[in-house]
């Protein structure tokens, strides 16, 4: 769930108020949005992608207490990390586009399924032998 908006980073652009698909934020009177409806947060990280100032931190726990505090996440370099991993914080050089490895998704998924199928067949055979 959305854990924190870092006021010192926030420019008050309100991009997150518009971009949050489930209407978690209200525009704040001092420019910093308010987390107004935490119960509607679906932990989708989309606000982080759309915040140009890397001022938001979403804890990964959909329910319950977060393992890391927002301050710890900041110290670990996790605030803004996701937007950087997506490449949304910079243009890509033409010879290395952001999505250059994306085609591997299908083959890797199939490879994973094959590993599981082979291992399971072996396990069954061993079980029958023994």
């Amino acid at each position: 769930m959305i854990a924190q908006i870092f006021a010192e980073r926030c420019t008050g652009c309100q991009a997150c108020v518009a971009a949050c698909p489930t209407h978690v934020f209200d525009a704040g009177t001092d420019g910093v949005p308010l987390i107004a409806r935490l119960d509607q947060c679906q932990t989708c990280f989309m606000c982080e992608l759309y915040c140009p100032a890397d001022a938001l931190y979403v804890a990964p726990e959909q329910e319950g207490e977060p393992g890391l505090s927002a301050a710890e996440a900041l110290a670990m370099g996790q605030v803004g990390r996701l937007r950087h991993d997506y490449g949304w914080d910079r243009d890509a050089p033409p010879e290395a586009p952001h999505l250059q490895d994306f085609w591997q998704l299908g083959p890797l998924l199939r490879e994973g399924a094959e590993i599981a199928a082979r291992r399971y067949a072996k396990r069954k055979a061993a079980f029958e032998d023994g």
Partner: peptide, 10 residues
């Protein structure tokens, strides 16, 4: 990247 974040953030 979004599949990794829930782990790194724990």
């Amino acid at each position: 990247p979004a599949s990794l974040a829930p782990f790194e953030r724990k």
